[in-house]
Design a protein around this nucleic acid. Structure first.
Lengths: 133, 133
DNA sequence: CTAAAACCTGACATTGACGTCAGAGGCAAG
DNA sequence: CTTGCCTCTGACGTCAATGTCAGGTTTTAG
């Protein structure tokens, strides 16, 4: 299929698809006229790429993971790299959960104040970040 | 305290602190000579800001939340805004968890292949994103 | 065959959270 | 008063993942 169809089927812009190629995340064939030609499998690959992007991985991190998605070679360090990325994501999840919980306590205090009288109690330290460093 | 000390105590660069002021996340006083002077409480505020940044909130979203941290006024829509941000974060956590789990299945398959023989089975579709749209 | 639609390359624009540099001024110690 | 460090403003640079535009080619529909 050509680039427009792939874009339509993945919800990703044409520009983005060309960018993915530039970053060597995709390697489409070319028609005699020079137009990109993608196989069916490209749809899933693009969705996978989007998935990893939303996880905060930069294309540099995704690129070395693509050979596995495409062929079936097992590069030596592949498991390590995958695991490293997994840990990174895990860490970010932890950060987000902590931040969400912190927001929850703030919401509780503010909501209570708004519900009753106007004045809102001073933040009690706990509401403020304690970076474990 | 002056900007250098605040930077040292928070681990944030001087440039970043000036940027925060530009975004109206901080409003330090000025010494007669024009230098920024921060109260003790700025340390916690900066840590809070960092916390929200790492949660993926842009400064535009953080700015309307700062009045609560500083004074104790309860703006009318504050609870709504806080809740909206909470939901955003919650969504991102969901994304990350799904991505992590997907990575986990990939790791399992690759690790098994690497452990035994070389060739790695073809990805079984499940390993690739199925966007619920 | 022709016009429209889709595609091509190349390049500059954008957004956010800063980095970095230039040139000038403030401030404590000796 | 001078040295040296910290700070100031202003402005341009960076990085990532695109958006957008220009000018030209390929493919498709009629």
């Amino acid at each position: 299929m050509r680039i427009g169809e792939l874009a339509a089927r993945t919800g990703v812009s044409v520009r983005a698809l060309r960018y993915y190629e530039e970053q060597r995340l995709l390697s489409p064939e070319r028609s005699p006229g020079g137009q990109r030609t993608y196989p069916e499998s490209a749809v899933d690959q693009v969705l996978m790429i989007q998935h990893l992007f939303t996880a905060g991985l930069p294309s540099r991190s995704i690129e070395p993971l693509m050979p596995y998605v495409r062929s079936r070679e097992v590069a030596p360090e592949l498991v390590e790299r995958l695991t490293a990325e997994r840990e990174r994501i895990d860490g970010r999840i932890g950060d987000l959960v902590r931040t969400r919980d912190k927001l929850d306590s703030i919401i509780a205090v503010v909501a209570a104040a708004a519900h009753e009288g106007r004045p809102c109690p001073r933040p009690e330290g706990d509401l403020v970040a304690h970076h474990p460093r």
